[in-house]
Design a protein around this nucleic acid. Structure first.
Ligand SMILES: NC(=O)c1ccc[n+]([C@@H]2O[C@H](COP(=O)([O-])OP(=O)(O)OC[C@H]3O[C@@H](n4cnc5c(N)ncnc54)[C@H](O)[C@@H]3O)[C@@H](O)[C@H]2O)c1
Ligand SMILES: NC(=O)c1ccc[n+]([C@@H]2O[C@H](COP(=O)([O-])OP(=O)(O)OC[C@H]3O[C@@H](n4cnc5c(N)ncnc54)[C@H](O)[C@@H]3O)[C@@H](O)[C@H]2O)c1
Lengths: 210, 210
DNA sequence: ACATGTTTGTTAATCTTTTAACAATATTTT
DNA sequence: AAAATATTGTTAAAAGATTAACAAACATGT
């Protein structure tokens, strides 16, 4: 579809930001935006914006700028968001529940279609209209709901086990919220999100300047 | 305290990982670990581990390795975690509640000491033993509890306003979960955590290989 | 005591990402 | 219609981060 050399990881994150700004601009009726405007709104440099886009093609008009709606559509396509994705959450605890109830995912094309937990107390309960299921049902439901993405929100000690089950069921992309490194086969994409580490980034920098 | 050149941002994130592994190792009674062991457990290369540590000093013994407990203590000090930090959460919705109830923060030295919300329905309710307070009380409570860090878990539209209040109250480090860029004065450290963007990293890469 | 094997800290090389510069192209003004 | 202004896409330069290589330092076995 698009030329795919080696794209900086950070570029992908910035494309998300750009797309959010572009959607807003379009909804306000704006018909052209410059790399400078995008840059200001998202906290980067204009050169960075143009470079990021240049990896994927030419989307603007020289001397003019970009059409927000058009560029938004292009970026969404680049990100693989020109379709909807079915997502399973494992771990119906505090975090898993919050994620299940989060409206923002659907807005970006992510449908939470099933929730799993190991605790018999939780199985059968409903969260966001979905019944919490046992892990035994995971493989079947993944097929039934065409689940391709998984979110791991279980304690660190259970993370590898849960990831193995997900991978076994054919899930191809995983977000892991447990603060532990887990391994997956080469063809599975995994990403760890460590929230405590984000706070530690702050304390490191506060310590630096004192 | 420590030499502070320009440290790669990613190094800070890895130090968090290393420290978690080192703590485990120490608790198992292990007395020496090599950069190779640290690397394997955290998913990086041994050279990376040694380079990361080298920014801050010499912590190992050639031919031998590192003492887990000692190195753990050093890293915690580097990260500014040789003390406890008081944290305020603004936004007692789904995410704010999950974060308030999260035990993992306290383990890393972060005490959630106050929770704020703008919704009169929520003010006065208790979460994790803490009363949800109105924003008017923020400034006073920040002083009372020596709050230095803030977590923003409000809708995107309210994020800048909330951040301004936090900054006004003297909070010096902020994690923003709203998917929007907010601005802060130079002396305030801010970090955006965009969970939808994490999923988009997955879909980008899944699209890449098909 | 010496040779062999480990493993760190550090320097150099490589690879990646960001920033800067500018020609190419469009628009607006005079 | 020419000049001035705006803004992209692209190339080159600079900065930053990771990987590789290896001497220095220690441990172990003979
Ligand atoms: N709550 C937060 O805000 C937060 C913040 C950062 C990180 N995390 C991480 O996210 C994970 C979940 O945190 P939480 O606060 O929701 O914990 P929690 O204890 O509230 O929920 C964990 C859930 O996982 C379930 N579970 C345990 N073992 C399981 C298994 N083998 N298979 C399926 N389900 C299993 C439990 O029954 C429970 O419902 C943890 O790894 C935590 O470190 C949470
Ligand atoms: N829930 C999630 O799992 C999740 C995931 C990713 C991102 N987020 C982001 O985190 C933020 C919160 O999400 P949520 O799901 O908890 O939403 P939510 O609607 O459940 O909670 C938001 C809370 O903020 C309060 N609020 C609104 N305006 C306020 C103001 N000006 N001052 C103080 N409080 C105010 C509301 O009363 C509400 O209690 C949003 O920006 C969302 O995009 C949430």
């Amino acid at each position: 579809m698009f030329k795919r050399f080696k794209i900086p990881e950070a570029t992908i994150g910035r494309l998300t930001s750009y797309s959010r700004f572009l959607k807003e601009a379009d909804e306000k009726g704006v018909t052209t935006v410059s790399s400078q405007q995008i840059a200001r709104a998202t906290g980067v440099t204009p050169a960075q914006v143009r470079k990021d886009l240049a990896y994927f093609g030419e989307f603007g008009t020289r001397g003019v700028g970009y059409n927000p709606r058009e560029l938004y559509n292009y970026i969404m396509k680049i990100l693989g968001l020109d379709r909807r994705w079915s997502v399973a959450i494992v771990g119906a605890g505090h975090l898993g529940t919050a994620l299940s109830l989060y409206k923002g995912f659907a807005e970006r094309g992510f449908d939470i279609t099933c929730i799993f937990d190991a605790d018999p107390e939780k199985i059968g309960k409903k969260i966001a209209g979905l019944e919490v299921r046992s892990l035994e049902e995971l493989s079947q439901k993944v097929k039934e709901y065409n689940v391709e993405l998984g979110i791991v929100a279980v304690p660190a000690a259970a993370a590898q086990e849960v990831v193995d089950i997900m991978v076994g069921a054919g899930i191809k992309g995983i977000i892991n919220f447990a603060p532990v490194n887990v391994s997956v086969p080469e063809d599975v994409v995994i990403r760890r999100v460590d929230l405590a580490s984000q706070l530690e980034y702050l304390t490191y920098h506060l310590g630096e300047t004192r």
